[in-house]
Design a protein around this nucleic acid. Structure first.
Length: 609
RNA sequence: GGGGCUGUAGCUCAGUCUGGUUAGAGUGCCGGUCUGUCACACCGGAGGUCGCGGGUUCGAGUCCCGUCAGCCCCGCCA
């Protein structure tokens, strides 16, 4: 995962713009340097920690810019001020006046950015006191954070922690850089409606009852997809929006009901133009938010290459190993499972984990569980040892088959081969899961982040239950090299001009060249099972717009929350969302959702449940 | 909709497997000592509906059933 280590974040902090003096203060706490020595300053902020040594008393004063030490002593602090200082509680908001001085040599704190100076406080005022805290803001190092439930319930206190404020500073820098990069490339930011028309495909919509039209509902947007295509038709040429999107689906560590996308669309472009624009934007985002250079152009893999070599459409290329086909080498040598798989139209696929023989039996059992959880019967393995092979497959590798295997796949002593047999669509997910698990276990995940465009997705997938075509990306994607007639005849064979951007195994963005041909668009919607009437009522406004001259266009939407989470090194996007929902989609702090009284419902034409 | 983990002092946890005296620790909080600390140190004190409800038992934090909440995963997320 890319992302800034602690030291790096400190460096980023130093580059933060200095704050102008205000009615209450002359600078931010963390912005005081040796240059301020001997100056009298006013500061304001929160009491982070207090250390009362009897005769002298220290306070770490905190604001978003950082910490600075205040020093109270009989020689420079008035008696009433000293009395106030002695009674301060953590998180009291105070304002002080004092003189900035170089600390005595022995008292310099090299761990602290402002550790060379301190403020000898002459006067203090408590602007707002704090009750005892339900959760600590100044969490001692090595102490666990409070449970996420309490962090969310007391989010205001949780957000005060410097780590959290830093997350949001980095997120802000990333957003700002994206805006600047896109603006410089000629994109203009346009807002699209929040109260939209319901389109029943895809995710569940959040619905808003219409008071003026009882029984009718607006839908909150799942994405600005159709609006941005209409903007292209309207000649906006290059559009972007830092867009909030809403989907009423179950939550995950990387999924919230409302989330933010950098939504981009361009006219008169092909894939290469979109890739270039996106890469330029991300380059600037990483440069300006993390001072990190990312190399462009990003790698490319077609969707089918990705599945063949990695078993997934979002491979983590930090792991060097590729999946290979062992069918020829391992069938017909007396191992029933392999022969049966081949006979059923499947293959024996797997990968070589160099040095993997060090894995213990229990580690291999764990891999077997991972493979089962991903839908396989299990994972088979063999270790290349000094005298041949060991493991469940070893018994058929004693003779020439084993030698041929070693030669063909360049197996060295100490290597581990992991194998799953069956139909590709069944073996791909477990192979992907096992590949990632083994790499983590063996510490074989590279340190350099891996950007990847996955291209040429199929236009449709077959619904596993009904076998009917469903959109692989979305129904407004341009097919590759086909006609409306062929599309209707053999929809599942058609490739699309859709693409995904993958970073270290996480899907960060996806997009496509759009269908700008009304006839082709109708054919796609028909293949999805819509009648002429349905197409007209749901998408008539789009098709009508396409009748008056529509430029070829395409774009992408990039998940801003996931990007920000990866940039700050967080496991969950909740760490980069100020007020996120729980996995049950509740706001613990404000208490959302909440009941509404019957009169209010009646006004909206609704009855209580 | 399904599976898993967690719930004990304000907070983080131990104790639950193997039921038994007054449920412990660290931290925070309150009081005290201390002039160079920076997770200050030291002394003293207060603080508990063991998530909630029911059951088994002479006896339940501990065993059983249900339920609520938080988190992780599958389904779902064009």
């Amino acid at each position: 995962m890319p992302g800034a280590g602690r030291e790096e974040l400190e460096r980023i902090r130093i580059e933060t713009t200095n704050w102008d003096a205000t009615e209450y203060r002359d600078a931010g706490c963390g912005q005081l340097t040796g240059d301020w020595a001997d100056r009298t300053v006013r500061l304001a902020g929160w009491v982070h920690r207090r250390r009362d040594l009897g005769g002298v008393l220290f306070v770490h004063l905190r604001d978003r810019s950082g910490l600075v030490q205040l020093s109270f002593g009989p020689d420079w602090t008035t008696a009433p001020a000293a009395e106030i200082a002695a009674s301060l509680s953590p998180e009291d908001v105070i304002q002080v006046e004092g003189r900035v001085v170089q600390r005595p040599e022995s008292a310099i704190n090299p761990e602290m950015k402002t550790g060379e100076i301190e403020v000898l406080v002459s006067d203090i005022e408590v602007l707002s006191g704090s009750d005892p805290l339900p959760i600590l803001v100044a969490v001692p190092p090595e102490e666990d954070l409070p449970s996420e439930e309490l962090r969310l319930r007391h989010r205001v206190l949780d957000l005060r922690r410097p780590e959290m404020l830093r997350n949001f500073e980095i997120r802000h820098r990333a957003t700002r850089a994206a805006r600047a990069a896109l603006s410089d490339m000629g994109f203009i930011e346009v807002e699209t409606p929040f109260l939209t028309r319901r389109t029943p495909e895809g995710a569940r919509d959040y619905l808003v009852p219409s008071r003026l039209h009882p029984g009718e509902f607006y839908a909150l947007p799942q994405s600005p997809q159709l609006y941005k295509q209409l903007l292209m038709t309207a000649g906006f040429d290059r559009y972007f929006q830092i867009a909030r999107c809403l989907r009423d689906e179950d939550l995950r560590a990387d999924r919230q009901p409302e989330f933010t996308q950098i939504d981009v669309e361009m006219a008169f472009v092909g894939e290469e133009d979109v890739y270039a624009a996106c890469e330029r934007m991300l380059q600037r985002v990483f440069a300006e938010a993390l001072s990190e250079d990312i190399a462009t152009p990003f790698s490319r893999l077609t969707w089918s290459e990705a599945l063949e070599s990695y078993g997934t459409d979002k491979p983590d290329l930090r792991i060097p190993w590729k999946l290979v086909d062992f069918s020829a080498a391992l069938t017909g040598i007396g191992f029933g499972i392999f022969d049966a798989a081949l006979e059923a139209g499947g293959r024996v696929r797997g990968f070589v984990a160099p040095g993997g023989a060090v894995l213990s039996r229990s580690a291999l059992d764990k891999l077997d569980e991972i493979a089962r959880a991903a839908g396989a019967r299990g994972v088979l393995w063999t270790k290349r040892t000094a005298d041949g092979y060991s493991g469940p497959v070893a018994k058929v590798l004693g003779g020439s088959a084993g030698e041929a295997l070693a030669r063909q796949f360049e197996l060295a002593e100490g290597d581990l081969v992991l194998l799953v047999a069956g139909l590709d669509r069944e073996t791909s997910p477990p192979l992907d899961a096992v590949r990632r698990a083994v790499a983590t276990e063996l510490d074989a995940v590279g340190a350099t982040s891996a950007w990847l465009w996955v291209t040429e997705f199929p236009l449709f997938d077959a619904d596993p239950e009904t076998g009917r075509p469903t959109p692989s990306h979305h129904p407004f994607t341009m097919p590759r090299e086909t006609s409306p007639e062929r599309l209707r005849e053999e929809p599942l064979a058609v490739e699309s001009r859709a693409y995904d951007l993958v970073l270290d195994g996480t899907e960060l963005a996806s997009g496509s060249i759009r269908c700008h041909d009304a006839e082709m668009q109708r054919a796609i919607l028909e293949v999805l099972g819509m009648s002429e009437l349905e197409i007209e009522s749901r998408f008539g406004f789009l098709l009508e717009a396409f009748r008056y001259g529509v430029p070829p266009h395409g774009g992408f939407a990039l998940g801003m929350d996931r990007l920000a989470a990866m940039m700050v090194g967080a496991e969950s996007i909740r760490e980069v969302i100020a007020f996120p929902k729980t996995t049950a989609a509740r706001g613990l702090m404000e208490g959302a959702p909440s009941a509404v009284d019957a009169a209010e419902l009646a006004d909206l034409g609704l009855r209580p449940a």
